[in-house]
Design a protein around this nucleic acid. Structure first.
Lengths: 213, 213
DNA sequence: GTCTATAACGGGATAGAC
DNA sequence: GTCTATCCCGTTATAGAC
């Protein structure tokens, strides 16, 4: 892909910037930060940072994209290995709840995500297509497993898998908003409870979190 | 409450401004509008508008507050009459789904609401307490009905009513985000489907919306 | 490749005329 | 009570030195 050394170096630097930005935002939070603030936190001047990105909006979009990239690497699952046909409801539950629980450790990223989610409603926003694709992809794998589990009778089939996927996505997003407003709220436990409602039962021997409210 | 004529007039004008602002935003949308834009849409200069409000943030917070006020009036229910002890699951379902469906008619307000929801995570934001109180109150009446219906066996009691209320609030908020991104999504139908999951059955003879996805 | 400097802009808030 | 005018600030984006 990268044909010239200088170009490849630029790309590498770009990646490095994104990783650093992720660390900073996760650790120190994101309060509608300006490019300048982020630049300094990352060890560059404002102009130096924008040298690598078209605009502020594109910069922050790329940060979220990089987050996804790192998350899917660290969890050791890419699209090929994720959600095998043998996945049970409990497998999906563990994965989904785990992701949500992890989010509580990176408040700044959650805030950036939430902010960009609403800004990206504008079709012209650089993150618009990113969110469309990301959401669709997440719902897709989720719905696929739900569908198989419905066929097996582990989940009621009164609601189509795609709709169930939308509901879970909405709960994940919506709980983030509640949690930003009230940090004591247990996002993961609440999502876990939704699985209870879905299956009509507790997970097999799964340890329970504390109360959700 | 209002003791002097001039003061009462100021308050009246303030109300009038808020109502006008609501109409404009509901009709023409809200694209992160500036005070100036809103002022002109409302027939005042920027300074003239700010004469009635402490700041931009307070202004937009009051707009949402007024929205709630008008909505609860127009639906003819205040806290005293709402959610009587005799309310069935279907009553709550109809009300809740109706509210969500109504939101699809006022995209600008949904966007303003979503935007302020994330800004209000900051404890210093004027809307912070507003959202805390509003959310708590909505969940409270919802949870009360859920609790009664659990006692009657109409709803599984494996999940505490407060948690169920949080889930429904999260879905309502989260579906707004999905809908802003993809206006073809049917928010109301999806929430309706969640009621299906909750009750494990279709509403009694209730007409169904189209597919949720 | 990265910086300093600055342009170009728009925002919210305020002073003061009327 | 409402307007015009303006201030002052922070922002993003760009130009140009090094």
């Amino acid at each position: 892909m990268a044909r010239r050394g200088s170009y490849a170096k630029g790309v590498a630097k770009r990646e490095e910037i994104l990783v650093r930005a992720l660390e900073v935002i996760a650790r120190e939070g994101y309060g509608g930060a300006s490019v300048k603030q982020l630049a300094e936190a990352v060890g560059l001047s404002q102009a130096g940072l924008l040298h690598y990105f078209e605009s502020k909006e594109e910069l922050f979009t790329e940060i979220l994209r990089k987050r996804d990239e790192l998350d899917s690497e660290s969890s050791g699952l890419d699209e090929a290995t994720y959600s095998p046909a043998s996945a049970t409801v409990d497998d999906v539950r563990r994965g989904y709840v785990g992701v949500v629980r992890h989010n509580a450790d990176v408040p700044g990223l959650v805030q950036l995500f939430a902010r960009l989610s609403v800004d990206a409603a504008d079709t012209e926003h650089p993150a618009h297509d990113f969110f469309l694709a990301r959401n669709a992809q997440l719902r897709e794998v989720f719905a696929a497993t739900v569908s198989r589990q419905q066929a097996v009778g582990a989940i009621p089939d009164t609601v189509p898998p795609e709709t169930i996927a939308r509901i879970f996505q909405a709960v994940a997003d919506g709980m983030q908003v509640q949690w930003m407003l009230e940090p004591d709220v247990d996002m993961a436990a609440t999502v876990d409870a939704l699985f209870d409602l879905l299956t009509g039962a507790r997970p097999n021997g799964g340890a329970r979190d504390g109360a959700a409210s």
